[in-house]
Design a protein around this nucleic acid. Sequence first.
DNA 1: GGGTGGGATTGAAATGTTTCAACGATCCTG
DNA 2: CAGGATCGTTGAAACATTTCAATCCCACCC
Lengths: 334, 334
Amino acid sequence: MKDVAAAAGVSLGTVSNVLNRPAVVSSATRERVERAMAELGFVRNESARQLRAGTSRALAYVMLDGGNPFFHDVAEGIETAAEDADLSLFVCNSSGRSEREAKHLDRLLQQRVQGILITPVDPDAPHLADLAQRGLPFVMVDRFSRAGGHCSVAVDDVLGGRIAVEHLIDRGHRRVAFVGGPASIGQVRERLEGARAVWAEFGMPEEDLIHLPTEALTVNEGRSAGERLAGLPSRRRPTAAFCANDLLALGLLQHAVTAGLRVPDDLAIVGFDDIDFAAAAAVPLTSVRQPRQELGRTAARLVLDEATNPGHVHEQATFVPALVARASTGTVRR
Amino acid sequence: MKDVAAAAGVSLGTVSNVLNRPAVVSSATRERVERAMAELGFVRNESARQLRAGTSRALAYVMLDGGNPFFHDVAEGIETAAEDADLSLFVCNSSGRSEREAKHLDRLLQQRVQGILITPVDPDAPHLADLAQRGLPFVMVDRFSRAGGHCSVAVDDVLGGRIAVEHLIDRGHRRVAFVGGPASIGQVRERLEGARAVWAEFGMPEEDLIHLPTEALTVNEGRSAGERLAGLPSRRRPTAAFCANDLLALGLLQHAVTAGLRVPDDLAIVGFDDIDFAAAAAVPLTSVRQPRQELGRTAARLVLDEATNPGHVHEQATFVPALVARASTGTVRR
DNA sequence: GGGTGGGATTGAAATGTTTCAACGATCCTG
DNA sequence: CAGGATCGTTGAAACATTTCAATCCCACCC
């Protein structure tokens, strides 16, 4: 800026005015300064701005699993909102590892980001409480914590479980598997809870809703759940499976096809999230849709509100999931 | 830091020493300072560091298509390398839009990142030349530009095309489709070039390698290519398809299954990239593997070398793709 | 012609680090 | 006990911006 000022024959303050309050500077001067900037290839130094401002012009999203497209769609939603507010977005990936998450948070704190959006490994981890206590705006995405003291955004997972299983009952299934785990993940618990609730309401015997636990929400685990499912004695074998997410469902679908089962006739499958690959599967997957982008946009809105509005009050935004029926549950049974 | 210094009864310089050169300060003082930092909840201000240092402790990767898992795997490779060098990584997504790419680059320039890795929309875009001319280290990932003046990292796409089609010839296919486009994408051209070369070498008639152009490298486009393929008169209809990437291949596979074709018996399919979803498809996809993580790691290494080593000389790293044969080309024909 | 008002410009302070020359204290050596 | 070496600590400058009170200049009015 000093060089620009010299080249344009004005003071530092004027250059700054051209950048930040172009209206107050006369058009002649403004033009001269702008020409000088172009000639010198001037690029504003963001760190100096930040230092002066005390905070950076950035938000951050720490996602749980970069390999799951669901989180990218959420990130895109956040990014559009960030762009509207003229903020950058740091996208970090904890890959489900708590220590990586902590490291990212540490860095983001040093960067003085305006706010943090996070889908945490553990919603009750102490490093999250630290954040809140520091007064840094943050929002939990797709997860809740008992603790409160911050905003969160998620869909109603119990309801999601309900509509998935109700759909299967509707299609005539009387023995259904719930595929998902570990139980430490709140979503898994709640989706199962919804499934059980509606199952009971329809008067189905409890033992005909079979829980096939998995170690993680991945394609591989879905495949191995498929093996276990195939290994069940035929009178106990479910005719349909509700998977806690689409990756599991895709893995299960793959196993079923490989094993020569017809989907949906021999085995119907419902996933959760409705990622793009669900619709793209060989047998397009029925799935419980989360409004992924909107989840992100809302989360960004909340964190910005907390950052800028002194009267901000924490909010737990809940979205309603919707069933998207496709070929994987296409036929009515019997 | 001022507060920490006061609390510990030392000068600013000493606090700085504790942070940056702990060896030079006596252990008694160090401990006192560290205690003060913990008590006050001190967090280093990264912008001030950057301002002083003149450059940030970060790299950036601008990816082409966040919806394609291929790029995430590359990003993960970059991130591991960045972590080793104790740098942060900005991940940006241009979504194939040139103006978004330019905007990202602009921001990154303002952030004074140490170097930029990019899979550009157009390798010869003027804003890329700007970067090079500014002297900012940058590396093109998965793409080449005629211009030179920078490092790049990619696989040998011509070779990739060759091994894909050679594999199909091997499996007994005598009429093959190449699915891919637009031709403005270098990769597409080169993969097709390799395909044609090996086709000719085996003495196959040129007209039996049929090019089905697409508008983009997406699942949707793959599906629509499938429709066109099915519409061909049966004596011209290929028995196998080589798709320019896995998303196309997944779309094509979906269409084939829906249309009641058996894969690979009625139609064999080869993809490119070997993303995780290729192995996870209902009929696991044969694909030409790119070493995705290694691509990223190498790119990061190169950009760091350019940033730190004055004797750096630009390098065009080329990796060798490898065929991963799976069920989608599983049988020998006839 | 002096005073007033207002728009344009300026200068200086402030932001939180890092670096480095200089200083002080302590210990050893001859 | 003087002189030197070593170790630890300090103080000030520098980094690139933003902000705001102060100043300047000009036109206009009485």
